[in-house]
Design a protein around this nucleic acid. Structure first.
Lengths: 194, 194
DNA sequence: GTCTATAGCCGGATAGAC
DNA sequence: GTCTATCCGGCTATAGAC
C-alpha cells in the first residue's frame, strides 16, 4: 500500500483539528506542524482555507456513507442497524464529552459565521436522516419514518451537547437505555416476540 | 429611569453578537460600532475581551434566574411551570433556527477553545437542570427528578440543533407536542383528571 | 469618560528559489 | 513538490491628548 499523499495528510490533520478546536480557531501553522510541512507548501495543494474545509466536509460525507453502508451489512435487520447508530454515542463517548458531535458543532459554527459551506455541512445530517428513515420504513412505520428519523437525530444531538457540558458519562448510558426503549416501542418490538 | 450606562450597553451588544456570530468571531470593532463608541474606550470599562465574556455570562446567568423566578409566579402549578420552559423553543423559534441555543452554542465554542470561562457557561445549564428537577420533585418524581430534568434539557437542545441545521419550524412544532406528551406521561398527568 | 493614534502580534495568502 | 521570505490586513491592547 502506497503511503498517504501530502494532500490526504493535510485533510486528515485539518479534520481532526476542526473537530477538536474548531474551524476558525485552527491556523495554518497548527495544521502544518501537525503534518510536518511548511505553511507555504499549503497553497500547492489548496488555494485557500475554505478549500480545505470543503475537502474535509467531502471527506466526512464519504466516511459517513461508508459507515452507513457498513452498518447495513453488519446489522442483521433494520432494528439492529438502528442500534448501530445509537451505539456511536457509546463508542465515541470520550470524544463527545470533550468536543461534542463533529457534525453538530461544525454546522453550528458555520451557521454563526454565515459561511458558504454551512449547507454542505448540514447535508451530513441529511445523510443520517435519510438512512434512518429508510430503516423505519422497512420496519413498517412508513407514514412516520421521517418523523422518527428526525426525532432520533435530535435526541442523540441533545445527549452529545449535554454530555459535553456536564462531562457526565453515566448520563449517556441512561439516555442510551431510554432511546432503545423508545425505539422498540415505536417499531412495536417486543423482547418476548423473537 | 436613568439611561443605561456605557458599560451595560457594551455587555448588551456583546451578548447579542456572541450569540449571533460567536465569541471568537466577534471583534471589538463590531461591538464598538454597535454601541456607538470608539475601540479605545473599551479598556476603560473592561481590561480584556475575556473580561467582557465574563460579564456577558454573569448577565445571562442573572437573566436566567429572573426568568425561572418569573415562571414560578406565572405558572399555576409545577406542570404549567415546566410548560413555560418548553415554550421557549416556540417563543424564540426564529433565533433558534438562525443561531441555535445561546447556552448550548457558547458552551460548545468555549469547550473547543479550552477557555477558562467554559465552566461558568455550563453553569447556566446547571441552573435550568436544578430548577427543572425541583418541579419534577414537586410532582412526585423524587427518585427520578434529576434524570427527568436532564432528559428534558437534552431533548430541547437536540431540537434546537436540528432546527438550526434544517431550518425547519414544522419540526419544532412536532417535537414540542412529543415533549409535552412525554412530560404528561412521566408525571402521570391525565387530560381527563382536572 | 471618551477620543485618536499606534504598537505588536498573528492570521491567511503570495512570490520565487531550489 | 517543498521550502524561505515576505506582504497585507485585522485583531487585541496600550498610550496619551482632550
Amino acid at each position: 500500500m502506497a503511503s498517504k499523499s501530502t494532500r490526504d495528510r493535510i485533510v486528515e490533520e485539518a479534520d481532526a483539528l476542526f473537530y477538536r478546536v474548531g474551524f476558525e480557531a485552527t491556523s495554518f501553522h497548527a495544521i502544518a506542524s501537525g503534518v510536518g510541512i511548511s505553511r507555504g507548501n499549503f497553497y500547492h495543494h489548496f488555494k485557500s482555507k475554505d478549500a480545505i474545509l470543503d475537502a474535509v466536509i467531502a471527506c466526512r460525507a464519504e466516511a459517513t456513507r461508508e459507515m452507513l453502508a457498513r452498518w447495513e451489512t453488519e446489522g442483521r435487520g433494520a432494528r439492529e442497524q438502528l442500534l448501530c447508530f445509537i451505539h456511536i454515542l457509546v463508542a465515541n463517548r470520550a470524544d463527545i464529552m470533550g468536543h461534542g458531535c463533529p457534525v453538530g458543532t461544525l454546522t453550528n459554527e458555520l451557521a454563526k459565521a454565515d459561511h458558504p459551506a454551512r449547507e454542505s455541512a448540514a447535508d451530513i445530517f441529511a445523510l443520517f436522516r435519510e438512512w434512518l428513515a429508510q430503516r423505519f420504513e422497512v420496519l413498517g412505520a412508513k407514514d412516520r419514518a421521517d418523523e422518527y428519523a428526525l426525532h432520533l437525530l435530535a435526541w442523540s444531538q441533545g445527549v452529545a451537547t449535554l454530555a459535553a457540558a456536564f462531562r457526565d458519562e453515566f448520563f449517556i448510558d441512561r439516555e442510551i437505555a431510554a432511546i432503545t426503549a423508545w425505539l422498540d416501542k415505536a417499531i412495536g418490538f417486543s423482547p418476548y416476540s423473537h
